[in-house]
Design a binder for these strands. Structure first.
Lengths: 175, 175
DNA sequence: AAATTAATTTAACACTGTTCATATATTTAA
DNA sequence: TTAAATATATGAACAGTGTTAAATTAATTT
């Protein structure tokens, strides 16, 4: 029952393929048949490694969070205060999802296998937050506002610009 | 080309049917065939009155906003200060969507005919806000936080309770 | 090399949104 | 009232979806 290396590799093929499709063509293009074709397998093979598509999507979400974490990491090292660092990291967090709007939708539009793994708010707390601040009320408020902002900005291809997002984000700064 | 009364009635049949299905069985159950069956017509008839399903969904969204507006209206009359009234209305706004989680998803999950009509944030400003406050920065922050809260609360059937939501909402109060 | 196990494929099923030719009402003209 | 013209409703058909399971191929063990 232990997940072998080969099995893990196979899973990664599909996760990788799905992520590329979502990034490039959007969520609605990430069908079982499309994913399998890009991975070089038949669509039925997916179900030997994943319970269903939401299960696969959940793995994609996990992979995306890792990538987003690398994107943010060390991005605020030169900032002096915790508030400055948090704002800087939140900026890159938002820019990451502006660059790939479909990735944000993955966490909320698709039923990413019911409540598996950490949510986007947990990730935000651990990655953007800092010791002793991540659990504070102002930071919780900030988390919700940033996600609300992304929710409105990324919906229905509003084609939001980097500049607009940066402007709106600045309004949400912790005081 | 003027939309006749009969045509308007027909549209309402489908809008009504779709709304009932979404309320009762969720978004994924609101298919063309299900909607048409509940309305008493064949699925093809829908396309004589709506460009496509997102177009129909957009009309449902509009209908829901009206209903939500009635739900909220006069709910904060006894409160003294604008802040108290806004908080009270926001509470009912949130409770409305907690009662029918699928309705919130309608605005963000489904592609409610690209950018037609006012968004949920516009509605929130006009219905929950008050003269001179709805355009203020704190209220904008509050709007985003409330929607962020709903985004997390209503996703993946987290089965959030009224009490939990009221507790979280209280934390977001304007100060 | 033969038998056994594992993995992959693909046909099939029940859905989906949408289109369009056909059938049915309804309205207008004679 | 009947006949022609118009408007509306229907459902078959198409291309797509997720998922399952039987059949096929590949890998492993005897």
């Amino acid at each position: 029952m232990a997940p072998s290396i080969k099995e893990e590799r196979m899973k990664d093929f599909f996760i990788q393929a799905a992520e590329e499709i979502i990034r490039g063509e959007g969520l609605q293009a990430a069908s079982a048949r499309n994913i399998a074709e890009r991975a070089g397998y038949s669509y039925g093979t997916i179900y030997n490694y994943f319970k269903d598509l939401p299960d696969l999507y959940a793995h994609v979400a996990h992979s995306i969070l890792k990538d987003c974490g690398n994107f943010i990491k060390d991005q605020a090292d030169e900032k002096e205060t915790p508030e400055e660092r948090i704002y800087e990291r939140a900026k890159w967090f938002a820019l990451y999802f502006i660059q790939y709007p479909a990735l944000f939708g993955l966490f909320f539009e698709r039923a990413v296998s019911s409540a598996s793994g950490p949510g986007l708010d947990d990730f935000f707390r651990d990655t953007v937050g800092e010791e002793g601040i991540g659990e504070s009320l102002p930071f919780r408020r900030y988390t919700l506002a940033v996600h609300g902002l992304l929710l409105f900005a990324l919906n229905r291809g509003k084609n939001i610009s980097y500049g607009d997002m940066l402007h709106d984000l600045a309004l949400l700064r912790l005081t």
